[in-house]
Design a protein around this nucleic acid. Structure first.
Length: 313
DNA sequence: AACATTTGACCTGC
DNA sequence: GCAGGTCAAATGTT
């Protein structure tokens, strides 16, 4: 176990070094196009590594081995909480059960993208919105629409970037386990984002969690919005899950309602490349995020070397 | 009626 | 105590 700890520590140190090198390279590039947000992004990476290393260093007495592998809460069993938990701080409400216990946002198993639209081909249900410190735009919280019926644990947070790019910082947590999840995920599919800067093609993994159907064309969307939901495995059905039959409120439009002066995603916007990271520690602030020119999506298990090579190529 | 979003309160970690 | 994440009642939409 101590050996594993050492290896993990070495891995994180290596990652930290890589991020520092990336910082030096990207910052120069960022200045060329007038953006400094790349620096922020790299700072997040460095921060993640630093925190991870700090945690490792702080638990050198064997507690690391016994620490939970995942900070996930078992929400499904929240009703089984001990009375000590349920009655903490305040007396139980008279007419209803106390809310289930929940943990603060877990930081593992998260992926971050930056996009002009918050649509990604899945059906999401908004369950909260919160103003974030030092951020002019609220952060919106979504979970998979199919959570109640299929127990899908996928969640995402969406926050509008505060620059003038009308882009959104989207952080995904967990993976879709619902039957209507993405159906592009068979291996061999190659996405070609013609958003301008991107030039490379990348085969997608066949991971069911890989979100591969970004940038649904508005025309397609309109077509499928009128469809009834089915379980057929097809592109159209896959797209239809983005709105899941609720054609009245696409996420993009919803956002326009929140920021009435925004005009995102409603004018046939050609999909730009996304930033896509497996994130070890989701960022807490998106005050000035930008985006990298990156056109691949790879959700599971890519190495940091691969990621950085792609960015720098 | 059934589903969605909104929003204030609640809860937890730092 | 604060900030972020979640809950759930109220409300809106179809």
């Amino acid at each position: 176990m101590e050996k594993n700890k050492k290896r993990l520590n070495e891995t994180l140190i290596k990652g930290e070094d890589s991020a520092k090198k990336l910082q030096a390279l990207l910052c120069r590039r960022a200045y060329n196009d007038g953006s400094v947000s790349v620096e922020d992004l790299v700072m997040e990476i460095l921060g993640s590594f630093s925190r991870g290393l700090s945690m490792l260093r702080s638990c050198d007495s064997g507690e690391f081995a016994g620490a939970p592998a995942s900070p996930y809460m078992t929400l499904a069993t929240s009703g089984d909480q001990t009375p000590e938990v349920k009655n903490r701080k305040k007396p139980a409400p008279a007419l209803k059960e106390r809310r289930g216990c929940y943990k603060r946002r877990r930081t593992i198993d998260s992926r971050v993208i930056t996009s002009v639209t918050i649509e990604d081909g899945y059906a999401w249900r908004k369950y909260g919105q919160k103003m974030i410190l030092n951020s002019q735009s609220p952060r919106c919280y979504y979970r998979c629409t199919h959570k109640p019926d299929h127990g899908c644990k996928a969640q995402k947070q969406v926050q509008k970037l505060e620059d003038e790019s009308n882009m959104y910082h989207i952080t995904y947590f967990g993976h879709h386990t619902c039957p209507t999840q993405n159906n592009f995920s068979h291996s061999g599919v190659v996405l070609d984002f013609n958003g301008g800067a991107s030039k490379n093609h990348h085969s997608l993994s066949n991971s069911p969690s890989a979100i591969t159907n970004f940038q649904v064309q508005p025309s397609i969307k309109q077509e499928v919005e009128s469809k009834t939901q089915s379980t057929d495995v097809s592109v159209s059905d896959n797209v239809s899950s983005a709105n899941d039959g609720y054609s009245h409120s696409s996420p993009a439009l919803e956002w326009n309602e929140i920021w009435q002066h925004d005009h995102l995603g409603s004018s046939g916007h050609e999909g730009p490349p996304f930033v896509w990271f497996d994130n070890e520690d989701s960022c807490a602030s998106t005050s000035s995020h930008g985006y990298l020119d990156m056109d691949f999506l790879n959700n599971d298990g890519f190495s940091s070397d691969f990621l950085f090579d792609e960015v720098l190529s």
